[in-house]
């Protein structure tokens, strides 16, 4: 690289060009981003696109197998399964995004503080995080929802709490190795207070590995929310939600009505799969070193 190299595009254009490269470089990332956009599209426009009202029952058409009218069949009350699966995307995605955002913010703040200041901050937060990790996480989430009350908000809080240790640990490790790095020292010399050094200089550099954690956790959070609904906590019928639909549909599998549980289950699987694939791509996107 010499001084003679012409200037390259900067700012947003450079970011988009880099994004295009990341997608081209790895077809898996391309598929993951396409699926992610598809899921987001369903969440936003699902209720508009749904061919039937997801709550409207029609006893005359109960338990019909998939057909041209009802792509995913109908359930025991005659509701259209396709419409319900489509409409449920928004709720499931909202729960998991809110939960992951909450635990990302709280967990990374706690972990970054522990990694930067060490000492008693580290000792106290470290033990709290260990305590959370000591419980079987799903049982802990069940306990929290049962104790706080059976609402969607409480599912969000419970999912956020059980995900928090992962962010706290990753952030702590990533910040601790950069605490005495040259650029952190240089930032102090430039007149940045400790908080600024941490927030503006060290933490952004810890983002790439946190992004991988974020997308893995998204999948996990969807599964968790659906799991809680499956066992009857949180979202209540007749609200369309993948977990409840699988739970209700499970009773009918024995009698041959497989479509009730399979389609919401596939939707759940697709969402989890997408978020798990997204991790590497997100990391490549936020790491400036991958840009050349």
């Amino acid at each position: 690289m010499t001084a003679a190299t012409p200037a390259r595009p900067t700012g947003l254009r450079a970011f988009l060009a880099h994004g295009a490269y990341v997608l081209r470089d790895n077809p898996v990332t391309l598929i993951a981003f396409a699926l992610f956009l598809f899921i987001v599209f369903c969440a936003v426009f699902g209720p508009l696109l749904a061919p039937y009202d997801p709550l409207e029952s029609n006893a005359a058409r109960a338990l019909q197998p998939p057909s041209a009218d009802h792509w995913f069949g109908t359930d025991s009350l005659g509701r259209d399964v396709f419409s319900r699966v489509l409409v449920a995307t928004r709720l499931d995605l909202a729960i998991s995004v809110a939960a992951v955002a909450l635990s990302f913010c709280a967990g990374s703040a706690i972990g970054a503080a522990a990694g930067y200041w060490g000492g008693w901050v580290d000792a106290v937060t470290g033990r709290v995080v260990d305590t959370i990790m000591a419980f079987p996480l799903f049982v802990l989430a069940m306990g929290i929802v049962a104790a706080l009350g059976n609402t969607v908000e409480n599912i969000v809080y419970a999912t956020a709490i059980i995900n928090l240790p992962f962010y706290a640990r990753v952030a702590r490790a990533e910040v601790a190795i950069r605490r005495e790095a040259g650029f952190a020292q240089a930032a102090r010399l430039a007149g940045n207070s400790d908080l600024r050094v941490l927030a503006l200089h060290i933490f952004p550099n810890a983002l790439p590995p946190m992004m991988v954690q974020l997308s893995l956790n998204m999948g996990w959070a969807i599964l968790n929310a659906a799991g809680l609904s499956f066992i009857g906590l949180g979202v209540r019928p007749p609200t369309p939600e993948w977990g409840i639909m699988v739970a209700e549909g499970a009773n009918f599998i024995v009698s041959g009505e497989w479509w009730l549980a399979i389609f919401p289950g596939l939707a759940l699987m697709l969402a989890v799969f997408t978020f798990n694939l997204l991790g590497d791509g997100l990391r490549d996107l936020v790491d400036p070193r991958r840009r050349t």
């Binding site: 790095a181 040259g182 650029f183 020292q185 240089a186 930032a187 102090r188 010399l189 430039a190 007149g191 940045n192 207070s193 400790d194 200089h201 550099n205 400036p288 070193r289």
Partner: peptide
């Protein structure tokens, strides 16, 4: 870092790569 004399005394680091925020 918040002292008025901070600017009067500065440093060039050993490893330029490590001393610049990536």
């Amino acid at each position: 870092p918040r002292d008025r004399r901070r600017g009067a005394i500065q440093m060039v680091f050993q490893d330029a790569t490590d001393s610049l925020n990536p």
